[in-house]
């Protein structure tokens, strides 16, 4: 076997697989401009009507509002909780450290449906709690492990002697943390926040157990796909894809993409 033929077969295979992965997105993009009220491909012309229709569909507006609310609250809360936990895990040696580290990562190992039903039963038992509060807790649980992992990786990369030096020169511990460590890990925190927002925004399965009468945006899209048959969801998807590309760009700038998956 010559080296060049092996190379081209591999290349062809790679691009076929990448095309298979990208094709759904490309079709969505094409269909979103279809002037007719069908999901047929190829489109018969170009129109932006469905983009306007996204904003005229009440369930999408309500869904967007609910999703933005959940994503911002839960990523803010889990960022604060996550940074505190990560500080303890990286900077201190204490009894039960390994066990606590494992516990914080636990939500990653619970299947999403199980997490959904668990939170549903928890909310039933607590009774005096609104659906939205339970959803906030659920989303915090879902993003917490990712935040802790990213922040731990960030903190491990900096020299604790910097803080010690600041304290030696008279800074109080809190001051040393806020003035020295925070600026260094700041970008990493921003990246973690974007990642948390994305994970919360797209969560579907566990959320589905708790949405009740206030669907999030993915749930509203899901319900629309199951009942309607026009390109409005394609237009919505295209807009969400643009937001996704922006998120990837921001994370590349703030934490580096390789850091995210290792």
């Amino acid at each position: 076997m010559s080296k060049s033929s092996g190379f081209s077969v591999l290349q062809a295979l790679t691009f076929a697989v990448l095309l298979f992965m990208a094709l759904p997105n490309l079709i969505i993009l094409a269909v979103s401009f279809n002037p007719e009220a069908t999901l047929a491909f190829p489109p018969t012309g170009i129109s932006l009507d469905w983009y306007l229709n996204v904003f005229r569909t009440p369930s999408f507006a309500a869904g967007l509002q609910q999703s933005v609310f959940l994503a911002s609250i839960s990523s803010a809360v889990s960022l604060v909780f996550g940074v505190l936990a990560a500080l303890a895990i990286v900077r201190f040696r204490f009894f039960g450290r390994q066990a606590i580290n494992a516990l914080v990562m636990a939500p990653l190992f619970v299947p999403e449906v199980v997490m959904g039903i668990a939170m549903l039963l928890w909310a039933n038992a607590v009774t005096a709690i609104s659906n939205t509060t339970t959803l906030v807790i659920l989303h915090c649980l879902i993003v917490l492990p990712y935040v802790v992992r990213l922040v731990v990786a960030n903190l491990q990369g900096i020299d604790p002697n910097l803080e010690s030096a600041a304290m030696l020169l008279g800074a109080r511990p809190m001051q040393a943390f806020l003035r020295i460590t925070m600026p260094i890990i700041g970008k990493g925190l921003l990246g973690a926040a974007v990642f948390a927002v994305v994970m919360s925004f797209h969560n579907f399965t566990a959320t589905m157990f708790l949405v009740g009468s206030r669907p999030t945006l993915p749930v509203a899209a899901y319900q629309y796909i199951r009942t309607e048959n026009d390109p409005t969801v394609a237009a919505l998807s295209t807009m969400m894809m643009l937001a996704g590309i922006l998120a990837v760009y921001l994370m590349e700038r703030w934490i580096g993409l390789e850091r995210l998956v290792r």
Binding site: M21, H202, F204, A221, M241, G244
Partner: peptide, 19 residues
């Protein structure tokens, strides 16, 4: 590209496959 797909919405990806 892989990361964009990793982060893209699962429901919408399935919608693309329906198309």
């Amino acid at each position: 590209g892989l990361l964009a797909m990793f982060l893209s919405d699962y429901v919408l990806k399935m919608f693309g496959l329906i198309l």
